[in-house]
């Protein structure tokens, strides 16, 4: 049987070449060729249409960006608010995977949305990509910075910068015209969105990661039509592909971008210790803001407990990732043992 899969991203993007391409391969492998895939390109389904595509049966497995749907998926919205917490890509993807698989309200939200969750991925730690040198807090003051979400806006405002909402596709134009002075983003954006032509300076500090993703979201009717063994095989293939994606997005691609940046003469520097510490403190304080927002917006009464639970999982997986030396294969195994092996595939997502 052929499953229609859609990454919603161009071939070079980690969520296409390092998530959907390997998933297609692993799925055939895990099912001995019983399940194969047909890939639909961005001209058929872009990220903006993924929800409808999954809900109407146009695609069976698709890369859903849950933050587009805060009203329907409040638990992911909460994770999105906690962006500044992220440090290590493998740890963040594993933590959100365990959180979502084991939390019953998350599963209820996803069922109501008609979708089945098969894991997340994460970027590397964001950095300040700017046209002017930045090393301490004063340098940030007054800068207009592209913000990819609410936590980044809070961060910018806290440090006296102006957050600007610009879509990633327009970042290049906005920066080349001076509408923005820089971006809070993965260093990989230097290559992915050609910012390498404009940015002069990269400042490394604890700026969180982007991890509120649902990588290989499966349409509920498709999932229900699979046998229990096939569902388990889907989870196995997804688990392997998720780690590939985090490896690429969180480690390998940033390393390539860093090398290219140095070659292009861009300065890459650590923020001065006082600034880095202030940023780290803000990230912790911001967890309260995240909880408050979720409580207010979605009436999530136990928001503080949810945040605590999530932070606990982040710490757990940071330790594991550290222990295995951020090794992709080891992470695949540990996430399977700790999370997916405990799932009953006769009932999960049903």
């Amino acid at each position: 049987r052929d499953l229609r899969i859609a990454s919603g991203a161009p071939p070079a993007h980690p969520s296409n070449g390092y998530l959907y391409k390997p998933f297609a391969e692993y799925l055939a492998e895990e099912t001995n060729g019983e399940l194969t895939t047909i890939e639909l390109g961005t001209e058929v389904v872009g990220l903006g249409q993924m929800k409808d595509a999954l809900q109407t049966g146009l695609v069976d497995v698709g890369n859903l960006l849950p933050l587009y749907f805060p009203a329907e998926l409040p638990n992911f919205a909460l994770a999105g608010e906690l962006a500044l917490t992220g440090k290590d890509a493998h740890a963040m993807s594993a933590a959100l995977t365990e959180y979502t698989v084991t939390c019953s309200s998350c599963q209820d939200e996803l069922s109501a949305f008609g979708m089945v969750y098969l894991g997340s991925g994460s970027s590397d730690q964001y950095a300040l990509l700017t046209k002017t040198p930045v090393s301490n807090a004063e340098d940030v003051e007054g800068l207009r910075l592209r913000s990819g979400g609410a936590p980044y806006s809070r961060w910018a405002e806290h440090f006296g910068a102006t957050p600007v909402s610009v879509s990633v596709l327009e970042t290049f134009e906005a920066m080349s015209q001076g509408t923005i002075d820089g971006s809070m983003a993965s260093i990989g954006d230097l290559l992915a969105f050609r910012l390498i032509e404009l940015v002069e300076n990269v400042t490394l500090l604890p700026l969180g990661t982007y991890f509120a993703t649902s990588n290989l979201t499966t349409a509920a009717p498709t999932w229900a039509s699979l046998s229990v063994e096939q569902r388990e095989a889907m989870a196995r293939a997804a688990n392997r592909a998720n780690a590939d994606m985090a490896q690429r997005w969180g480690y390998d691609f940033p390393a390539i971008a860093e090398k290219a940046a140095l070659e292009a003469g861009i300065t890459i520097q650590e923020a001065d210790p006082a600034f880095a510490e202030a940023a780290a403190e803000f990230a912790i304080a911001d967890q309260q803001a995240a909880a408050a927002i979720s409580a207010e917006r979605f009436g999530m009464e136990d928001a503080s407990e949810r945040v605590e639970e999530f932070i606990r999982l982040v710490e757990k997986w940071e330790a594991i990732s550290e222990e295995v030396g951020h090794d992709r294969d080891a992470i695949v195994e540990r996430v399977w043992d700790e999370v997916w092996s405990k799932v009953d595939f006769a009932t999960y997502g049903m």
């Binding site: 903006g48 249409q49 409808d52 595509a53 809900q55 109407t56 049966g57 146009l58």
Partner: peptide, 17 residues
Amino acid sequence: LLGTGPAVGILQNTPYD
């Protein structure tokens, strides 16, 4: 090619998108 579900879905969201 795919049946009514996906076709109606595309009809529903393409205009607005």
